[in-house]
Amino acid sequence: MSDFIALWPGAASAYSREVDLLIGAFTVLIVALSAPVFILIVVFATKYRRGKPANRRHAPDRNVWLEVSWTLVPFLLLIGFYIWSTHLFAGLYHPPAEALEIDVIAKQWMWKFRHPEGQGEINELHVPAGEPVRLVMASQDVVHSLFVPALRLKQDVVPGRYTSMWFTADTPGTYRLACAEFCGADHSVMGGSVVVMEPADYARWLEETGTDRTLAAEGAVLFRQRGCSGCHDPASTVHAPDLAGLYMRPVPLESGGTVIADAQYLRDSILLPQAQIAAGYPPIMPTFANVLDEEEVLKLVAYIQSLKGGKERQ
């Protein structure tokens, strides 16, 4: 590809090449569906121009099957493509369990990334090639959208909830990363790059990059600083749920029903504790919505996730 003009984006994953194949094949289909219209309009406009002699006698009967066929055949072809595309899309919702999890915080107008061992970076994301990576994303303010054209992937980052996106990049290199959802004045400069590295280089990069503490360790400090431990410590006299081994366990609710204690539930319980109260506990927890920012919430959630169950044996 020349520097003068780009005509096709680079591809950095098997998934992105599949999307290219899908759109290529689909383009062939739509050209085939529309070509008759374009050609026939021009042909008819020439051949049957007003005043020009031509055979204009119509067959006495309408060909109903012709009409049905030009509705039905395109529809069936489209259904085929619908299945193909939806199948590809569904894969985006099923990340491999062993995926490397990187936390992402979006705010006006920057991207902050935190690797599992605590390495942080801004507007630049280093990932190993050939390994699945899952981004868990939260927004500090408005809706943003993480867009990596070379991966053909994009996911809105919405305040008030976690969204995620996963990929396996396979070609080392530096790729553009952008915000795709309009987010205010400097939307168009809220970009950066994704650096895909050989796994060995990635490991070296992790080592070289200063790491203070892991997310979970920072969360443990916050857990004491903000007074969470006063109630949730197993030794506490206050009747509050024990958090050890809580992550991904079903929690019976006071209001009836059960929820799985996933990241979203943990987050909501910190910020909106009155919304879903665990059965058998008094509704005494105050909200931390105005005390913690998104990054601190992520750290606390990481800490709670890291607490292995004492009673639970798996």
Partner: peptide
């Protein structure tokens, strides 16, 4: 209309949405 069909395809839309 036909490019609208392209956009209706989920896997393609993930890439070209908001572009």
């Amino acid at each position: 209309g036909l490019t609208g069909l392209i956009l209706a395809m989920l896997a393609v839309d993930v890439h070209v949405h908001d572009t």
